[in-house]
Amino acid sequence: MTTDLVRQEVKSTDGIKHAKKEVNWTKYILMSLMFLYLVVFLLIPLVFIFVKAFEKGAEVYFAAITEPDALSAIKLTILVAIISVPLNVVFGIAAAWLITKFQFKGKQILLSLIELPFAVSPVIAGLVLVLFFGPRGVLGPFLDEFGLKIIFSVPGIIIATMFVTLPFVARELIPVMQAQGKTEEEAAISLGANGWQMFLRVTLPSIKWGLLYGMILCNARAIGEFGAVSVVSGHIRGETNTMPLHVEILYNEYQFSAAFAVASLMSLLALVTLLIKTWIEWRTEKH
């Protein structure tokens, strides 16, 4: 009996010591696991892109990103972003304003519908646009009459990009505007400001960081979108090829260095996006 008790006591004090040591061990193990995982799955691929891109020297690299097809792909990608991001901003502000400042029926449904493009495969997004705007689609004959071509041309690429990026700005702005409430805007209006004055002087300054955050994420996706754009583009070289599609073509033609050169440009942009994003987070946290 007594020996049993003593043994138990020894065990339990052992347990305490053990537990104290274990705390450090768990921290150490978990941190190393995290670092290992992130190095293998994020860091190595990222470094690999740049190594591959410069494998055959800087000359090949610059030739790959300045050849005419690459330049036209870059231009088209910038055009797509320049049109789709501002439209997304207008939509995002309107949707966030509607949802956070007014009470109406079906708000919850609207919120879910805004998130819908995230749940839909990009390929399906492309498919539905072909079914709707395509030559054999519902609007096909009507567009044909006016000589408008949407699918397999630039407008289709822009619409596909707008589809997949639709939620980005709205979902960043909704929580920001929700937290802000509406007393400040109400004060501005009751003091005689008109709608635009209120928006520019009260609303916009308070949402600008959230807006910028949404915009850079939207921009990154707009530039990198592949699946949806691939369906509607028709892959016409020098005409309807965006940068990701250009990378695909180069890769399938076994021009690996060129493919990774163009890919490295986009990776650089992704890194800048992450940097700005982290900076905004740091700023708002400090604030």
Binding site: L38, L42, L43, I44, P45, L46, F48, I49, K52, L217, A220, R221, I223, G224, E225, F226, G227, M243, P244, L245, V247, E248, Y251, F256, A259, F260, A263, M266, S267, A270, L271, T273, L274, L275, K277, T278, E281
Partner: peptide, 21 residues
């Protein structure tokens, strides 16, 4: 900040990188 790399990196870039890697 680095955790979000998969969201910021174009999927086609991730695709060719992982395939070669």
């Amino acid at each position: 900040g680095f955790i979000d790399l998969p969201f910021a990196l174009p999927t086609a870039v991730a695709g060719i990188t992982l395939t070669t890697l």
